[in-house]
């Protein structure tokens, strides 16, 4: 930050594109409205995705809690479909990037193109400039390309050819990655992984759900008939509501203890960014549950998906998930 401060100011002045400044006061939505938006989206998505209620809920809380989501699973379980249906449910700009081994960073962020008529370079925004960005099979691109996402995801801005441009608000990345074919994929850099609020697994549907799924997809796919239930502005205001949800000291202390536990019991534990992400997710969940304050239950409901992918162990038999499960079991909720 120390070296970034003076340049940032200058950069901001030269920023050609400026979407709504965050500094402007955003009018938060009433709590109940946000709650109903959550249920609306959930119901909407459920028309396409059979089962996976908890995953859908997690995606929605991430959306409301200003987080990005990484869906990690085998192909064909509906990762992309889930991302698409979420994006469709919110009436906003939806972009999709299909990551391939030969994808270049500029293919994501955009390039300056020389305009013959004006004889000037014009910035051609890449697919990252969207409210909801679907990064499909993100781990097929080499680290260089993936790193193009780092700045966008954390700071909601893109720097191309020395010029920094803000991304539209809201900005949410829903990425998918393949758990199989490790030879043809690149592991996501840990720094990037840390920028995802949640890493979710869909898993195969239950037999009944699958039968239902098959029945629905006969004929027209429901995604084609899906309509939005809310819009961009509402989502921004809902996020504001979520960010104002009270987090009492005991809850903050509890989150700190959880993060501390992972640091003590794993090679790399949850980062402070992870702890912040956990609180934001918990805030969103509190709102979904109709509360204007966070309880330890909200934290517990989010901890597994928020912290697990940030914890790295040297022990092959115990991954981050096991560590977080232990933490939830052993870290006392009350002091």
């Amino acid at each position: 930050m120390t070296d970034a401060d003076p340049p940032t100011d200058t950069v901001l002045e030269t920023t050609p594109i400026d979407v709504d400044e965050q500094t402007e006061a955003i009018d938060p939505l009433p709590l109940t409205r946000v709650e109903s938006i959550g249920t609306d989206i959930e119901a909407n998505v459920a028309r396409v995705i059979v089962g996976h209620e908890s995953v859908i809920e997690h995606v929605i809380t991430a959306l409301l809690g200003r987080g990005h989501v990484l869906l990690d699973d085998v192909p064909g379980v509906g990762k992309t479909m889930l991302a698409r249906s979420i994006a469709t449910s919110v009436d906003c700009t939806f972009r999709r990037i299909q990551f391939t081994p030969d994808l270049l960073p500029t293919d994501v962020t955009g390039v300056n193109v020389f305009n013959q008529q004006t004889r000037e370079f014009e910035f051609q925004p890449g697919p990252i400039f969207g409210n909801i960005v679907l990064g499909d099979e993100i781990n097929r691109a080499p680290p260089k390309t993936q790193s193009a996402l780092l700045e966008a995801m954390e700071e909601e801005q893109v720097t191309a050819d020395g010029e920094t441009r803000s991304l539209p608000a809201p900005f949410t990345v829903i990425a998918t990655q393949n758990a199989i074919e490790p030879n043809r994929t690149y592991d996501l850099p840990f720094a990037e992984l840390d920028r995802f609020m949640k890493k979710l697994h869909l898993g195969y549907p239950d037999p009944e759900d699958e039968a239902e799924l098959l029945g629905r997809t006969v004929g027209t796919h429901p995604i084609d008939e899906l309509e939005s239930v809310t819009d961009r502005e509402t989502l921004v205001r809902a996020r504001e509501t979520v960010s104002r949800v009270e987090v009492a000291e005991p809850v903050r202390a509890y989150v700190t203890r959880l993060a501390g536990y992972t640091r003590e019991n794993a090679h790399i534990g949850a980062s402070p960014r992870g702890a912040i992400a956990l609180l934001r997710a918990a805030q969103a969940r509190a709102v979904i549950n109709g509360r204007d304050y966070v309880t330890p239950d909200d934290v517990q409901a989010e901890a597994a998906v928020v912290l697990s992918h940030r914890v790295k162990t040297n022990d092959r038999t115990r991954d981050g998930q096991a560590i977080v499960a232990d933490a939830l079991e052993q870290v006392p909720v009350d002091g």
Partner: peptide, 9 residues
């Protein structure tokens, strides 16, 4: 109540 359990859980 177990230590890791919240009041509600």
């Amino acid at each position: 109540r177990r230590p890791g359990e919240s009041a509600r859980s």
